[in-house]
Write a protein that binds this DNA or RNA. Structure first.
Length: 220
DNA sequence: CACTAGATTTTCT
DNA sequence: GAAAATCTAGTGG
């Protein structure tokens, strides 16, 4: 599996966000502890002109990472307890990062369950805080690590998404700036943090968590 | 299954 | 002291 190189991240932030869906995030802190996951949801955060971006707080805050070199990690601590994994991504001279919000586990299920507890695979990494916990990512350890280095935490190539399965929506959880379509999700995945709005009534969902098998009833 | 409320701690004013 | 890119448990249908 090929690590993504610097030039991948040196493009407009929304483009990188869109292209990251269907690729892999990999973390192997120690031999045999490898976790691989397929990214199914991302969000783009731009410079100070974007009201939803932490860049509005200025370079002297923890958001100063948004000014860093593309390909580095920016880990934001939300509500004091949840770690959120971003990758700095922008053309030269610009500012921005991509938040990795959700993924499907591909390898290392046992390692992930040890961190998150046993639950359905699609519920292990279906939100930004859960994703970081599942991967074992913390701000203390991973702030500023280089995602293009194929050791430890990095981003790698993946199967991508079928055309038409990748949809753009408004970003989630923001007090401002949720209007622009800067969130990208694979709508066929059961592991997204929130299902995308359905365009029409006849979209054939492959599977959703609500379509899960009903509990069998006990016969007395 | 849908919705609501409460938790919890770091960072910045 | 207030706010924050969220999560989970709890309630009701």
């Amino acid at each position: 599996m090929q690590a993504l190189d610097r030039s991948f991240f040196r493009r407009p932030t929304p483009v990188v966000a869109r292209e990251l869906v269907g690729r892999h995030v990999v973390h192997e802190p120690d031999e045999g502890q490898r976790v691989v996951a397929r990214i199914v949801e991302t969000e783009a955060y731009l410079g100070p002109e974007d009201p939803g971006s932490h860049a509005t707080r200025g370079r002297d805050t923890q958001a100063g990472r948004l000014w860093d070199q593309p390909g580095l990690a920016y880990v934001y601590v939300c509500y004091g307890i949840h770690q959120m994994l971003n990758v700095v991504a922008h053309p030269p001279g610009e500012i921005g990062a991509v938040l990795i919000r959700a993924a499907e586990p591909v390898e290392g299920l046992d390692v992930v369950e040890a961190r998150r507890g046993a639950r359905p695979p699609e519920a292990l990494m279906d939100g930004p805080g859960k994703l970081a916990e599942a991967l074992g990512v913390t701000r203390a350890e991973h702030e500023d690590v280089d995602f293009t280095q194929p050791a430890g935490l990095h981003l790698a190539d993946g199967p991508g998404t079928q055309a038409g399965d990748l949809v753009a929506t408004g970003r989630i959880g923001l007090s401002a700036g949720s209007k622009r379509l800067l969130r990208f999700v694979d709508r066929t995945s059961p592991a997204v943090s929130r299902p995308p709005p359905e365009p029409q009534g006849d979209a054939p969902r492959e599977r959703s968590r609500s379509d899960r098998q009903k509990p069998s009833e006990d016969k007395s």
